[in-house]
């Protein structure tokens, strides 16, 4: 990761962080609707991976998908408008937080079905292979998805066909409200794929340089048609499962403990230490992100709801 990359990644993380913190507030204020899952604390994974991809690379995600969509290039104002149910939204107000799609930027979609998009990502990798292209497919899923039959079936199929698929597991240790240890004896998701002989790595997902480097290595190989790969990013979900979750099932981290883990603080500090940035320049990156969030909020609020006719219009292609 050179210094230009690092600045881009830092800006991406700041954008995601400020967007999601605002979304959480707007949800509680009744301006954003539906089931909202934020990834505050996990931004390093989205930013360290998606910023290395092209528009023709297919990215899939799950229910905690705002960060992946933004990092893949979805315009923030249209993501915000989507969460507000407006016609200017990414999906014209038909999808909402858990069903973000931005075909133009290769974000083929989030899903509210845990692990549901994992086989679909393999299908996009198959399409790439059948057409003889060098595009790749990437799917983000949580450690909670790795106990699903469809996900395990996909591990087998991906290794059998050796398609250019990069599986990125965000292991935050919690499947919704339950610690991983209560659901499986396999501690690391990368061990769950061991029999299939994937190239696999487990990294500190809050060390964005490590994420960048491991993902970049896999990506380079996937471009030549190799695969599949599994990158397990150990990370931490700072807030509850959804906005409004009292999270009584676990103890919150102390603030100073969290500062040592926060992927944004860590990258920012290292860039200041190595002289790439000074404090003012780093603050300016955050301020720019906040301004973009403000503009997105205004854009969403000023946009109209879609016409009732839209429901029938898009039921069939």
């Amino acid at each position: 990761m050179n210094s230009d990359d690092a600045l881009r990644v830092l800006a991406t993380m700041e954008r995601i962080r400020h967007f999601e913190e605002r979304v959480a507030r707007l949800k509680l204020a009744g301006e954003v609707f539906g089931l909202i899952h934020v990834s505050v604390g996990q931004e390093g994974v989205a930013a360290g991976t998606c910023t290395q991809l092209r528009d023709d690379d297919a990215v899939y995600s799950g229910h905690r998908a705002h960060g992946h969509a933004l990092a893949k290039g979805a315009p923030m104002n249209r993501v915000m408008a989507e969460l507000m149910g407006r016609e200017t939204g990414l999906c014209r107000g038909m999808g909402g937080s858990m069903h973000l799609v931005d075909v133009e930027h290769g974000f083929l979609g989030a899903t509210g079905v845990v692990g549901g998009n994992v086989p679909m990502a393999l299908g996009s990798a198959l399409a790439s292979r059948l057409r003889g292209e060098d595009s790749v497919a990437v799917v983000f899923f949580g450690d909670g998805a790795a106990q699903g039959g469809h996900v395990l079936e996909t591990f087998n199929l991906a290794s059998l066909w050796q398609l250019p698929l990069i599986l990125v597991c965000e292991n935050n240790g919690f499947a919704e409200f339950t610690p991983r240890s209560a659901h499986t004896v396999v501690e690391r998701v990368s061990d769950a794929v061991a029999p299939y002989d994937f190239a696999r790595e487990t990294v500190d997902g809050n060390d964005v340089r490590a994420v960048w480097s491991s993902f970049g290595g896999f990506l380079e190989r996937a471009r030549t048609g190799e695969g599949p790969f599994l990158l397990e990013c150990l990370t931490h979900r700072l807030s509850g499962h959804y906005v409004g979750d009292p999270a009584a099932y676990r103890e919150a981290l102390a603030a100073d403990e969290w500062r040592k883990l926060d992927p944004i603080v860590r990258l920012r500090t290292s860039l200041i230490e190595d002289g790439t940035l000074d404090e003012a320049a780093a603050d300016a990156i955050a301020a720019e992100a906040i301004a973009e969030v403000e503009a997105a909020e205004t854009f969403g609020r000023d946009s109209a709801y879609p016409p009732e006719s839209l429901t029938a219009e898009v039921a069939y292609a």
């Binding site: 994992v118 086989p119 679909m120 393999l122 996009s124 059948l130 199929l157």
Partner: peptide, 23 residues
């Protein structure tokens, strides 16, 4: 040919279709 994995192969077909193929 596929293994006997109806959930995954259906997902694979959907993903390929979304990526421009006609499975």
């Amino acid at each position: 040919n596929t293994p006997i994995s109806e959930a995954a192969i259906t997902g694979v077909a959907i993903g390929a279709a979304q990526s421009g193929m006609r499975p």
